[in-house]
Write a protein that binds this DNA or RNA. Structure first.
Lengths: 80, 80
DNA sequence: CTCTATTTGTACGTATGTATG
DNA sequence: TCATACATACGTACAAATAGA
C-alpha cells in the first residue's frame, strides 16, 4: 500500500488530501477516526496522528477534542 | 504490582483470566467495572480497556453498553 | 415521565521508550 | 545525529445505553 521511498505519514497525508479535494470527504463532516485509519492502513497511531497533524497544519482539517477531526471549508486550505 | 518487562495491559488480562478460570468470577456475572479496575490497579482507563478488550477477543467476557462486562460461558473461551 | 448515577463506547491530546536506517 | 515508525501508557472530553429513584 505504501511506497518505500516516501515516509508513510506523508503518503497518508497526501491520500487524505486527495479525498478532501475530490469531495469524497465533505466540509464540516468528519474524516475517519484515528482508530479507523490505524485499522485501514495498518500504521501505528503515532504515524496516523503525524499525517493528520500535517493536514491540520495545512488547514485541510480541524480537530475537536473528544469529538473527531473534520474537513475545513475550502477557503481555509493553505495551498502554498 | 506490575512487572516492568511485560505490558501492564497484558498482565491485567492474565490476572482477570486467572480469576475467571478459578471461578472467582462466575459465568453470566459481571466482572468489576472499568472504573473499579482503575481504582484497584492504579492504571489509566485506556489501559484497563485494552486489557478487557483482549479478554473479549479471547471469548472470556462480553460487554453490554451501559450495563457492564460479564463472564462468558466456558464453551465460548478461545484457549488457542 | 424526568432526572440522575453508573457503565461502556468513542475520540483526541500528550508523553515516553525502543528500534531502524 | 536525526527522522521515521511502532508500542505502551496516562489524561481529558463527549456520547449513548441502562437502571432506578
Amino acid at each position: 500500500m505504501f511506497r518505500p521511498d516516501v515516509p508513510k505519514w506523508l503518503q497518508l497525508t497526501e491520500l487524505l488530501k486527495g479525498r478532501i479535494e475530490s469531495g469524497e470527504y465533505q466540509p464540516r463532516y468528519p474524516i475517519p477516526s484515528e482508530h479507523q485509519l490505524v485499522q485501514e492502513t495498518g500504521l501505528a497511531r503515532t504515524t496516523v496522528r503525524k499525517a493528520v497533524a500535517a493536514l491540520r497544519d495545512q488547514g485541510y482539517v480541524y480537530s475537536v477534542h473528544g469529538l473527531g477531526t473534520f474537513v475545513s471549508p475550502p477557503e481555509d486550505r493553505k495551498t502554498s
